[in-house]
């Protein structure tokens, strides 16, 4: 189990790093193509925008791992350890439910996009590009859930 989790972490990290590198290279090439060769490569800009979505969601998944999401952290500053633990548990489980719901409905949506043969750009179907939404939200939900249980029981769990 622990190995599987480590393997998953490494996969997320590598995909993210490779996406960012690809983005820098493609964006750079597009500028060259436009300013020097006088034309553009029509599929690069829409691809770059999809990469922004992927990088954003994978980055968010990463932020979930280390609990670095943007939040107003009032109670943990003012409350004692007991209140703190309750607040952590409740908010983490809440986030888990929200992510789970978004993941579930996104999954349904992607299925619909597949059935309707929704096109993203050029001849590329939209559904494989949209698959990142249910994937990341599902995994974020799972991570928040495990963290919530950990906060409730006071144990260290990996996700």
């Amino acid at each position: 189990m622990k190995q599987l989790v480590q393997w998953l972490h490494r996969l997320e990290d590598s995909v993210l790093v490779l996406l960012l590198l690809a983005m820098i290279i493609l964006a750079g090439y597009d500028i060259l193509a436009r300013s020097i060769f006088g034309g553009g490569v029509s599929w690069i800009p829409p691809l770059l925008r999809v990469m922004v979505l992927w990088i954003g969601l994978l980055g968010a998944l990463l932020a979930t791992r280390s609990r670095e999401h943007i939040s107003i952290d009032l109670i943990s500053k003012l409350g004692g350890p007991v209140l703190n633990r309750i607040a952590s548990t409740v908010t983490l489980l809440f986030a888990a439910v929200v992510c789970g719901l978004v993941g579930w409905y996104s999954g349904q949506y992607v299925q619909l996009a597949f059935e309707f043969q929704d096109i993203a750009f050029a001849d590329i179907p939209a559904w494989p590009l949209q698959l990142i939404i249910p994937f990341t939200f599902g995994l974020m939900g799972l991570r928040f859930f495990i963290q919530g249980i950990a906060a409730a029981t006071g144990k260290e769990l990996t996700a």
Partner: peptide, 17 residues
Amino acid sequence: VMRDSMKLVGAILLILA
């Protein structure tokens, strides 16, 4: 560095989304 910077990007873009 790439990972750390994209963590922030993720946090911002998720809120935006």
